[in-house]
Nucleic acid binder design. Structure first.
Lengths: 206, 206, 206, 206
DNA sequence: CATGAATGAGGCTTCATTCAT
DNA sequence: GATGAATGAAGCCTCATTCAT
């Protein structure tokens, strides 16, 4: 049976009972941890359910397949990240300030959700559509913010999407190198160097 | 049996005969194609040998395990990429020029070796050491080049490693977005935007 | 993955080596025994491979799925039954004689291949097409023989297909009752009674 | 726990309340439909309860196991078929007339209860005892009727049980071929051909 | 009476690896 | 050097059944 058929047949629980909600969440959290540590393929459903403290069969009450929980996880955490950044940067007017706070929030997020960071890269071979969606979606919002800053003259005019991908690439690689590999928040020295590069790169008055 | 034990026990890794060399290369090429298309886990040894036109057993005459051929591939292609960039930028003195040519060479490389690009991201969960080695090794050379440019005053002084990761992140994300997803070389407009950002970011005497 | 996709992907071994042929046959024989005893669903691949004396994985070298070996079995044994009847009745001119010999051959066959007899009934829910094919195919040949007998005036004229299904039904139920349930060949008394019914039913001169 | 132990332990099998009766019947009807369409094994308890519009747990309030509802269904429908035939042939004196009406009633029944017809064949591997009981029970009554007809000279004397299985086989196969596969009542031509065969086969004074 | 969440055994299938030829 | 049949561990998933509410 294909994943699609299964998903259709599946009474995708979305259970109403509080107990069900809790179980579903436990599975999601366990999945993040396990996928993060072992990677999508090496992680087994058994690993997930064991960590969640439920029986194997229970998994399929809430998710129709391994792929499905993975996709759900990516979507959910992606939402959470965007939300966190939006919250942290709300009220800020200066684009550079937004960049800095956004960056720090991102580093913070991947420290707390190491798993999700590692996971996304794998999505390419798990669900190519989801993988692209993740970045495109993020880039869209990013680019919009940059465009606004260009219009108000805060930064040099330019191709907002290209810029968005440049900035995402920077955040991603710095996060990988200094947060994930070093296992700590990047030193202020690193942050300052990155911000200096970005500030100059984006330009604007002065 | 562990991978390490197997590797030690393994004989006849480096065949001398020309025929052996050819078989080995066929396997490596097939592996790149298959890993690139399906991803490391979904690709089976059978896929590889079938594509290489040899029998299953033959695989183990040349590589002790699936991981091993993967690692070999990453190392080999990484070497090839660095070589290509070195060749292309040899003789160039201007750092910005080096950046531009390096970028274009990189885009060219991933167009020809889509597989390898996709593959590296997976390496994290196949062989974490290899994964980090890949980037660290590249970053080291990159940073050295940047340091030289700083010393000669071509670009602003700063933390060369951080800068290297920033630039690698940019190349990686732009390559993903405009080469891989669009399936073509990035338009000159995109390249110019990226270069403008880098030029300003790196600074130096106007 | 669907059965069809798998079958296509499957290098349906049809191995040439004598060893392979032997293994394939062992699996087929084991499957007949196991399906016959336990029924299609209760029979596991493990049951089959254990009985055949090979490892589980070996099964999939020769058959792409449980359904596939089942279908193969039905087809193969159906062919064997038709062949046996054709051989036994070759040279007979009298239709009644053909009926009698055919019946006895059939009883003999289901004694030797209890499994297959039991199995066919299940085919309806395993592979509906195969199930109908089995009976339709048999009926076609049967009806042709009856038509010839009608034309030569050996039996009363009539609707040959309907007659064929009547005669098949008789053979099937008598076989079930007296061969399978009693576990022996039907007594001559039973055979005579059946033949008397058929003789009168088919009519003809006298 | 074995089926037998469970059945003994099981309480509240025969609900007294009208509501309970209704639920039980809903389950039985749903089971007929589901077993008929998917077959015993492919049908799940969930399929049945979903179709019946009750919760999964409710099933076990009325039946101790999947096998049990299956057996109940076979028994119930078998009773219904025998009852229908008895009703339809009550008052008829001529054996041929009884045969004809019985046949038509049978065809009618399997049109209305396609499910049950298909189901019985599977019973062999679900509950062998039940399977044989079904046919033996039916044959017994059939044979008795034939014996009476022999004694009154309406048909040729002979082995009544053998004859009963012949006639059951005919009805079964003609029903399968012309009712189930064609999805309609058999044409009068088919019925006449069958009846002609039976009439001649049974003999009697002209 | 009824619910529906939870269980866990067991089935089919894949695939990296070994080995006899 | 090469072959390809064989192995068996391990994974995903289903489903009859139980149980707390």
């Amino acid at each position: 049976m294909s994943d699609i058929e299964r998903a259709q047949r599946h009474r995708s629980r979305r259970p109403v009972s509080a107990r069900g909600q809790r179980t579903r969440q436990k599975l999601l959290d366990a999945a993040e941890a396990v996928f993060g540590r072992k990677g999508y393929h090496a992680a087994s459903i058994t690993d997930i359910t064991r960590r969640a403290g439920v029986a194997q069969g229970t998994f399929y009450l809430y998710f129709p397949s391994k792929r499905a929980i993975f996709a759900e996880l990516v979507r959910e955490r992606s939402r959470a990240l965007r939300y966190a950044i939006r919250q942290a940067t709300a009220g800020l007017a200066d684009r550079l300030e937004i960049e800095r706070v956004g960056l720090l929030t991102f580093f913070d997020f991947i420290r707390k959700h190491e798993g999700i960071y590692r996971i996304v890269n794998q999505a390419e071979f798990v669900d190519r559509r989801l993988f692209q969606w993740y970045y495109r979606h993020f880039a869209k919002g990013y680019a919009a913010g940059l465009r606004a800053a260009m219009e108000s003259g805060q930064i040099d005019p330019g191709h907002s999407e290209v810029l968005a991908y440049c900035l995402m690439g920077i955040a991603d690689f710095i996060g990988m190198r200094y947060v994930l590999w070093d296992g700590s928040s990047p030193s202020s020295e690193v942050v300052e160097q990155v911000m200096a590069f970005i500030r100059k790169g984006l330009g604007g008055p002065r």
